[in-house]
Design a protein around this nucleic acid. Structure first.
Lengths: 343, 343
DNA sequence: TTGAAAGCGGTACCAC
DNA sequence: GTGGTACCGCTTTCAA
């Protein structure tokens, strides 16, 4: 019932616990015969050093905490996957919490885990925290020596390692791509206009238009603030009716799908005379009709990179502080059938 | 830099560590004035009792381990959400691992966490473990006194708490529903025929036909073994061509969407003369065209129930063993536009 | 080659 | 009302 401890083994062989400890760690101080029998016994009886005792002793837990805005968001699930792979490979466990975009939950989670439960944090800001622009909870933690790596939704004001998507270029390149395949009236639909990543995409869109010598038409820039996807179609319908539009760039899949449906209802043919591109390249893009051309943000790669950054920092032997770095993950356009194939 | 300990506080006030400990725990033994100043100081300096010290002392971690086959599966993400909510509310952390349907990974994870890292497990079997039918790794853990609660994909051979979907009834009821709205040639498409949940749905389907006095046509029972969703359409196309089909029940969303597309390509009108219902009620169902009628498995509820079961067991004071229980989550049909509305 | 003991950060029993 | 100390399980230094 109870787990085997080093003490039990010591009693079994009538030796001291230090002997057992050393034997299990294959110390040169212990005779081969003693080591062998102790190791054999330990293995046979499935001995495992107690995690909490080790963590207490070593002052590190080989555990990282991850705070994610939502797990139902495919992109974040991909990031999580990437994190999990790297962490697992390097022997780290993951304690995961969902902030649900709540500032309060984010703060509470940070608090809860700042008691030696974890060695470092991986996190993407909750929307509410971004709006509040309050990041002091992170500073407290970092002052305690717990490193943080932020991904995707990062706080510029906080000095820490970061992994972000190249949202600006991703959007600009998309405009270029659409223009090349004949679009002239490109709408931009954003459901995340309050987030930095949303703003960057917006700016990239504007830059793309500028470079293509296309005019900016504010009527074609749609910021959806309602976050119930069910309303997207009714929000877009009048806009699509009132304006001449032949292409859409959406910041997320749900609104892109809504755009496709509205366009189709209004008689446009996708991709013949109407193109749709969405950010994030998730599961919806692959299953929509037609399948959607997407700006891939490489969620898994982002997660893997963030995890690597954090673990490297945790394990950095030399005392010299490593410079904080920001790694930018380039986006890629995944061409499917909601746009005309470029030649 | 370093975190504040009880010892630091004791030194600060020139008292013993036991006094500090008691003061912080608001013991009646300590004078009000001492308690006040110590508590105040602790709060101001952001003192937090060390997690590992507590866990070591108490022999419990207030942490549960969850092993999930995949986080990219919306259903499992929903389950995770439910788990997270309950765990959080009751003060538990979650260490999460993805098995990726791999037996090896499942075993390794169990091993890795069976060292006092967690108080109990929540898990859904990896497909490979089901195929191997090898569950001894669970027995080892449970013999060590670590409770396991299985959800969705459970092992009948293992005695533990379980939370499952009523797959049989869910499928049978769906047949009834389809028959009522006029379908006579109902196909059953499964991508999980090797899992118990898949078999149950299959049986439920057969039972539904029987009750409706409809013949069983084996040509209409399609087990897709290829798990690349990209091939689903080409697998279904010849089958749909060769058989008279007016409705489809699919075990998962991807194959349901493929079925919709194939049916539409072959000229069927959904829902007018062709109906589609899918299990799991995830994100695809809500975004397909038309939106898909689904058998909701209430993922969040399943996760919440499983977490509650585990935590209740962990915190059960009395020594008497609680009976293992299996909780069945009833399915619900969520009517959307891929079926004719029932009256 | 082996063992005693201190210490990691707490709690709790017992003595004063 | 306060303090001493053993203990949780393990590592590591130092002594034997």
């Amino acid at each position: 019932m109870k787990r085997l401890t080093i003490k039990d083994i010591a009693k079994e062989f009538g030796v001291s616990i230090s002997t057992v400890s050393k034997a299990l760690n294959d110390s040169y101080e212990i005779s081969v015969s003693t080591k062998e029998k102790i190791q054999k016994y330990a293995k046979e009886n499935n001995y495992k050093p107690n995690f909490n005792a080790l963590s207490l002793k070593n002052r590190k837990t080989k555990t990282i905490g991850i705070i994610i805005p939502s797990m139902l968001n495919y992109f974040f699930a991909q990031v999580f996957n990437g994190v999990e792979k790297v962490a697992n490979k390097r022997g780290y466990k993951i304690i995961s919490c969902i902030s649900n975009e709540s500032y309060k939950k984010e703060v509470e989670t940070i608090e809860m885990l700042s008691n030696g439960s974890i060695d470092g944090f991986l996190l993407s800001l909750a929307e509410e925290s971004v709006l509040k622009n309050d990041f002091s909870h992170f500073e407290d933690v970092m002052a305690n020596g717990t490193p943080i790596v932020m991904f995707d939704r990062v706080a510029e004001a906080i000095q820490c390692d970061k992994v972000v998507t190249d949202d600006f270029k991703g959007a600009a390149k998309t405009v270029k791509y659409l223009v090349k395949s004949g679009s002239k009236n490109i709408a931009f639909i954003s459901t995340i206009s309050n987030l930095k990543v949303g703003k960057k995409r917006h700016q990239g869109y504007l830059k793309g238009l500028e470079k293509a010598n296309l005019p900016i038409n504010n009527n074609l820039i749609v910021n959806i603030l309602d976050n119930d996807y069910k309303n997207y179609e009714s929000i877009l319908t009048p806009i699509f009716k009132a304006n001449k539009i032949d292409a859409v760039i959406a910041t997320d899949e749900s609104s892109a799908i809504a755009a496709m449906k509205v366009a189709q209802k209004q008689g446009h043919k996708i991709p013949e005379n109407f193109a749709v591109v969405s950010f994030s390249n998730g599961i919806l893009a692959r299953h929509s009709s037609p399948k959607m051309t997407s700006v891939s943000q490489h969620g898994e790669k982002m997660g893997a990179t963030a995890a690597k950054l954090l673990i490297d920092r945790l394990e950095h032997k030399s005392k010299e502080t490593i410079e904080n770095q920001t790694i930018i993950i380039k986006t890629d356009l995944v061409e499917r059938n909601s746009t005309k194939k470029s030649l």
